[in-house]
Design a binder for these strands. Sequence first.
DNA 1: TATAGGATTGCC
DNA 2: GCAATCCTATAG
Length: 210
Amino acid sequence: MARPTRLTRAFYDRPTLEVCRDCLGKYLVYISPKGRLAARIVEVEGYIGENDPACHAASGPSKRNRHLYDKPGTAYLYLIYGSYYCLNFVTEKESFPAAVLLRAAEPVEGVEIMRRRTETVLPGSKLLSGPGRCCRSFGLTLEQNGYDMALEDSILYLEDRHDPKPEVEVSPRIGITKAADRLWRFYDRDSNAVSGPASFRRSGSARADR
DNA sequence: TATAGGATTGCC
DNA sequence: GCAATCCTATAG
């Protein structure tokens, strides 16, 4: 079996929707102060450029979104609703503001560390179900904002463990009001760690397809 | 300086 | 179903 390989800058330096699809089934690894954490990514969304009304760069550069304009492979984090952080992987060429939002993953290594960071009682499989939970369980904050994930010795990076490609489903992005028609959310059909109510998922939905 | 609102979560 | 919570962007 081939050993895991770190994803290099070339992985992020591509059209964002391609990166989105390819992120599914890859692993987020963080050599944290409390120990090594790893998780299999099962849900992401794309936010692409100043013409995407839902992208933080829709009104041009600002203090908050500045790292969206950094080189591909940069981590972009921000605070949402005064309570939670969200992690993005910056994509495409430098100065073009686009990123992949991490929405859900399956805990693989360091599950007890993740659990200790979480106040509410959650099933282990749901510790990373939601963008806020991903950052909380991993202990990621604005401290990691602007971090370069594509260096040889990065302590926060994506890894390919050469798993089989997951079955990918597509849907509108969650929680936004603008550009809600774009199908820029991607998730692993077979994972029970995908965020949101079951009605967001095609399979397992009690409602008939519209 | 004032204010509206958000790529969420968890409790009611 | 909705409040919590606080930073950011925008308006005055």
